[in-house]
Nucleic acid binder design. Sequence first.
DNA 1: TCGCTAATCTATCACGCGATAGATTAGCGC
DNA 2: GCGCTAATCTATCGCGTGATAGATTAGCGA
Lengths: 352, 352
Amino acid sequence: MITMQAVARRAGVSRAAVSHVLNGRAQAVGLRPDTCRRIRQALAESGYRRNETARAMVKGRTRIIAFLTPSLREYYCSEALDGVLAEANRRNLFVKVFTWRGSDRPAEFARILDRCFQAQPLGIIARGLQADEMSLLHAAVRAENMPVAALDSSATACPGSTRVRADDAAGIKLAWHHLWALGHRRIVHLTGPAELEYVRLRGAAFQACMRRAHLSAEENAIGYGQEKDFPALVQNWFGQAPARRPTAAICASDIIAALLVRLLRGMGLRVPDDVAVTGFGDLSISRYCDPPLTTIYQPFQLMGARVLRQVLISGNRPAPEKRRDIILPVKLLKRASTAAVRVNRRKARNLN
Amino acid sequence: MITMQAVARRAGVSRAAVSHVLNGRAQAVGLRPDTCRRIRQALAESGYRRNETARAMVKGRTRIIAFLTPSLREYYCSEALDGVLAEANRRNLFVKVFTWRGSDRPAEFARILDRCFQAQPLGIIARGLQADEMSLLHAAVRAENMPVAALDSSATACPGSTRVRADDAAGIKLAWHHLWALGHRRIVHLTGPAELEYVRLRGAAFQACMRRAHLSAEENAIGYGQEKDFPALVQNWFGQAPARRPTAAICASDIIAALLVRLLRGMGLRVPDDVAVTGFGDLSISRYCDPPLTTIYQPFQLMGARVLRQVLISGNRPAPEKRRDIILPVKLLKRASTAAVRVNRRKARNLN
DNA sequence: TCGCTAATCTATCACGCGATAGATTAGCGC
DNA sequence: GCGCTAATCTATCGCGTGATAGATTAGCGA
């Protein structure tokens, strides 16, 4: 390993002189230009690299950001981490990732949290925490006055910490107005378990759209549930006579949308001809599905970059009392799973 | 921040005594049991946590593993990283992730490599490197004698470093024999650009199966190419008369398989009734497609865990001259995109 | 030659910890 | 009381770096 000492010897100066050059203090302390040059040359020739560990030691703080997630396989997790990493690069920070999926999660999380604090990070970015895990984290960061920010729509509230999420309500509104503009009036909403906050947010947005359009709740149902609940729900809705059957479905995720497409095809209904379907999230599946899904793009990369900036900001300020939500805008991606409502024949004849 | 010094004061002993307890040297240096107890109590009460930075400083090496990937959004990258992280947890190691996708990749990579070495990692895990990046890495790790292992099927050769990958050939063989057992004889292989090593490996395995079954290359074509090339290829193959048309297709990835299913449906052909399709990789898309894809499961998590172990091993030994490949077994997942070949009517009548 | 200032570079402390040699006290036999 | 050993704990060095106070030399006027 090449230390500053070695470089100093090579340049025939003291270690301090090398340090001055490295830290831009050469002018300030008055090193002669040609001494500087000698030192720079020695640095280049020896291939010296700063030792980040020693720097952290003497500075009293590392340049590490901790990223906590139960697993990287969940949902949009790796996309967001990717955004965090890009921003960390720009700011010359390092990212340590911690996971803890396993049998007894809260206990395992406590261990991980310990390991995380041992690394003395500058700040913590967390996502996917359960309620009990969130309170552990909250207690720890308060005790150590550690900057923290969450990256979630399902996170339990953690007072005093910022949360970055996509605009769920706006996404559903975009999907709804897209379908409305295509002539759809009987629209249903298929979504996940109501315990999740983002599920509730999206459901509420859907209902708000309905009310504003004076459409009855009867024709425009919300189906909460999990994968196994969907077949019965879908049979119920789409097994009706064509005149009563919904012409469009807004799904709370791309995965739900893909499942719906499969179920509809099984019932002999075509997408988008008989039923228009929208997803949410712009996961890769939405691009490769048949038909490719009209969906809501969430700016995961941006969210990652933003949450990192937020951690750094809150490192420089006293923590606020209340949690702040940072809500990033979403976009509608029109693909092949939505089309104009098909006017049924009788009506069409009447109109002509 | 609570240091050992603070704990020592609280327990009324010297810092050294605390260090002895923490490092299991209490017996060896002969601390009295009740002194030990006092120290342990002080440790618990103060909520002391070891400072990983200082430990690394004095030990002369960190507990950091560097994970290098151009981006986390590629292919199976996050699954593999997940495996690395799980194994790192077990071994009490930390993982720093570095990415560098961007406009001028090799230059950006050089910067990242510098940052990586500044962190003084125990070892490096790399994937997705271009040839020029690989040679930069190779030069650096040789100079510093840094353990390194790759996680790829497309990586350019890096002499002296281990590579972990899935058994591509075995995967194709599994798919082929599955289709063969279902009665398929006219089988084609749809795959990516031939520059990629895993594409060549899978193609060669397909051809080997063909030859062993004495099937002609004419009926059993390989289509190399990219997304834009596929429609023409597929039209060529499957636009033929039913008696000449392939009854099955082995795809080199789940994404290609999903695209193929869409194209076939566009031609009025049904999967699996008219054409059986297999994917490769067991990406999430393969579960949510319609129909869910029969595919080859690759043990990404295991691969991640294994590559980490490998880095640690090569840290303890002198680097071998030649690269070693570690090839992990794959599995066939039977889902709904494959079925027995349909006997055509004339033949069926004859048989009856 | 002496004293003063400016120019140039270096000695040294500190960061928190691991490890080892050494210090201090206690106990015991004579 | 003295010397020796064992038991128990502590002082101290060193890791590589950042930062600051201080050391050394040069130059110049009288």
